[in-house]
Nucleic acid binder design. Structure first.
Lengths: 203, 203
DNA sequence: TTACAAAGCGGACCATGGGTCCGTATCGTC
DNA sequence: GACGATACGGACCCATGGTCCGCTTTGTAA
């Protein structure tokens, strides 16, 4: 089932919808002020088209999110340090968390929309499992840390979209300050496992 | 405005609604399978009554939650150690987090319903601010910890209802194991501060 | 006990937004 | 150019939160 390619009008419409949705979510305001009808109208297509292309609202959000996430995913899977695979765990963990945080800062409304409008728990989502699995694996390589799975959950929880939104905007902490605080927190969690010298808290 | 007391049928109905909602949410299944109409029907009252008493859905959830939370709040505000005020911060922080975790374990569906069906972000909720403020104040008394506010957020994030639900059930980690993991994580966060000066890159 | 206003009741009703359906238009192939 | 497959689009459906208002209950005061 090598999924035969879509017709070209279908492809065009798909792109139009993604672009429109992107623009709408970018505009400030609560994510669920953006209705599916709004998106369809902004894209210049009918609701039927929208739903056929993405299945349902979470599907659209997911598609958007994945698209935005792609570069980061690539950087993590096959990029240079400190994100890429060739990085010592002690540096890679904070780098990963910082990257996630920055991503959520850069895509606040979208991340928010996805987490709150998701099909049930965000923890079911494929992309969460991906990040959690990765982080867990890296944590596992750091000696002196037990419960990598839980630690990964707990660290990722500190980057949840609604928390980030609460802290960062509007009129909240500046970006760099938030990054520093997360880095500090991460360092504390990692430091306690390793007995020896300071892990050079800088990423 | 010394809010004159409600009529007794109103009081009775309010209780009936709370009891019914409690029972309905306790029954397994997704929290939003429980509609307001369901609650009204189960309580044997009309929808109008329900909405007059609680304003809206989040209002009902909040009322239920607060009621359940009351004993814990009391234990924290004026109970004996390790929850009460007379406890050294190093012991009180883990005790508080453990209490929150246990509470969410004991009231999973309800906590879930509240967090996901809340009016926007859970971080706006009065009860969150309460816990955060308290935890932050206690953390502040521990030397060597910077960014108490962020630390409090991050620690509380590890007890979020959907994460707890994801980990604990169904067929998940047993209660004691989860508690142990959270305790361990908390200890790691606290331990790292007491060793030396602040390693942070930003103050 | 009766009278009567204020408080409360309840369920028909409304608005909104996600999701479906199907007659019509477009595509792409022969 | 013709014809089947694919896609379009917006009218339509329906669940659910929330409102409205004529009727009932309660509490009080004569």
């Amino acid at each position: 089932m090598p999924e035969r390619k879509p017709r070209k009008d279908a492809a065009r419409n798909r792109e139009a919808v993604l672009a429109a949705a992107d623009a709408l979510f970018a505009r400030g305001g609560s994510p669920d002020d953006v209705t599916m009808a709004d998106v369809a109208a902004a894209a210049g297509v009918g609701k039927g088209t929208l739903f056929r292309a993405f299945g349902d609202r979470p599907g659209l959000l997911r598609a958007l999110y994945e698209a935005r996430l792609e570069p980061l995913r690539e950087a993590v899977e096959s990029g240079p340090p400190p994100l890429g695979p060739g990085t010592p765990p002690e540096q890679r963990v904070p780098a990963l968390l910082d990257a996630v945080l920055c991503f959520k800062l850069d895509n606040r409304r979208l991340a928010l929309a996805l987490e709150e409008s998701g099909t049930g728990s965000p923890y079911q989502a494929e992309h969460y499992r991906h990040w959690h699995g990765l982080l867990r694996a890296v944590l596992e390589q750091i000696p002196g840390l037990s419960d990598s799975a839980f630690t990964a959950h707990a660290l990722l929880a500190a980057t949840r979209a609604d928390l980030v939104e609460h802290l960062a905007g509007p009129e909240g902490l500046p970006r760099e300050r938030l990054r520093a605080q997360l880095a500090d927190f991460t360092a504390r969690v990692l430091a306690s496992g390793t007995r020896k010298g300071p892990p050079s808290a800088e990423g």
